[in-house]
Nucleic acid binder design. Structure first.
Lengths: 164, 164
DNA sequence: AATACCAGTTGCATGATGCAACTGGTATAT
DNA sequence: ATATACCAGTTGCATCATGCAACTGGTATT
C-alpha cells in the first residue's frame, strides 16, 4: 500500500509537493548560486547548518525527482559531483522572486539582499543570462559572454567591503 | 530557552522559513485565487484535503507572521473572515512563477494549468492588475477596471467545458 | 426545544527533522 | 607499509510536525 501519488493536479500544489520543505530549495540555491558541487562542500559551507543525514536524504530525493544529477569525479573515486538539470535551472525566476520577496518582507541582512535585489532589477534578461550560464556550468553548453554570477558576486563584495 | 530566531539572513532562506512547509502556500493560494475567506470554506472546499487541526495551526501562524489578518463577520458572531495583507498580496509574482514552473515540469492537470499559463503569459502587467484587484477585495482599496481573477476563471471554465 | 452550523481542539499514530557519533572506502605523506 | 586525513554518507535516538477521527462549546435556524 503506497501513499497516493499527489494531493491534487494544481501546478502550485505540485510545486509545493516537490519543493515545499525546509531544505530542498536551500540545497538547490547553494548548488546554483554558490556552485557547491560535492556533498562535503554543501555540508561544511552551509550557511544554515544542514545536518549530514538531511543533506544525504535531500540530495537523493532531488536526484530521484530529476532536479539534480549525480556524476563521479574523475580525480577521486569516492567523490560525487552534483549538477543542476534543466528543470532545476528553470527555477531561476522562482528563486529570484523568493529572494526579492524575502529581501522586502523579511529581515534579511543587507549584504545578502544586494544580490537578490540586483537579480530582481535585472528582470527576465538577467534571469535568462543566468540560466544560460548555468547551462554551461552544469550541462556543458557553450559559455555565454555575460556572467551574471560574476556580476552578483562583485556587487556583493563591494557591499560587504563598504559597510554603509 | 527559545530556538534561534533564524537560520541565516539570506532572503531566500527567510522566505523558505516562512513559507517552506507543505501547507502555508496552499492556504494562501486558496484565499487569493479561490477567495476562501472562512475556516469552513478553506476546510471543506480544499482540493488537497487539509485537516482541520493543520488548517487552524496555519491560519494562526500566518496571522502571527502578518500574511493574513483575522476579522469578525458581522452576520455571525462566531464567524471569522481571513484577509490577505499587503505582504501576502505581493506573493503574486512568486505564486505565478510556482504555477508556471509546476505546469511545465510536473504532471499538472490540463484545466488547472490553463490559469497558471495565462497568469504567466500576462507577465508583470497581469500580476499588477491582480494585485490591485486583491487590494480592493482584501484591503478595501478602490475597485480596478480590469478583473484578472475573472479572466482566469472564464479561461478555466472554457477549458473545462471544452475538453480538448 | 431540537437541529444544524461554526471555528476550532483533543488524542493518538506515524513520519520528518535535528544532533552526535560512527562507518568503510580512498588518497596522501612519511 | 603505516599513519593520517578526506570523502560520502549511515545509524541511533530524541523531538517536532503532520494526518486522521472524534469531539467541544458557542451561535443561528426552525
Amino acid at each position: 500500500m503506497r501513499k497516493r501519488a499527489h494531493r491534487s493536479g494544481c501546478p502550485i500544489n505540485l510545486t509545493v509537493e516537490m519543493l515545499g520543505d525546509p531544505w530542498s530549495l536551500i540545497v538547490i540555491r547553494d548548488v546554483m548560486f554558490g556552485n557547491r558541487r560535492h556533498f562535503g562542500e554543501l555540508l561544511r559551507l552551509s550557511e544554515e547548518g544542514i545536518a549530514s543525514n538531511i543533506l544525504a536524504d535531500r540530495l537523493g530525493r532531488l536526484v530521484r525527482v530529476g532536479l539534480l544529477s549525480r556524476g563521479g569525479d574523475p580525480t577521486h573515486k569516492q567523490k560525487a559531483i552534483y549538477s543542476l538539470t534543466e528543470p532545476a535551472i528553470q527555477l531561476v525566476p522562482l528563486l529570484a522572486q523568493m529572494g526579492a520577496w524575502g529581501s522586502r518582507h523579511a529581515r534579511s541582512s543587507r549584504e545578502l539582499s544586494i544580490r537578490a535585489k540586483l537579480l530582481e532589477q535585472g528582470g527576465p534578461r538577467a534571469w535568462d543570462g543566468l540560466m544560460k550560464e548555468l547551462r554551461s556550468i552544469h550541462l556543458g553548453a557553450p559559455r555565454p559572454r555575460r556572467s551574471v554570477l560574476a556580476e552578483l558576486q562583485s556587487a556583493y563584495e563591494l557591499a560587504a567591503k563598504h559597510p554603509d
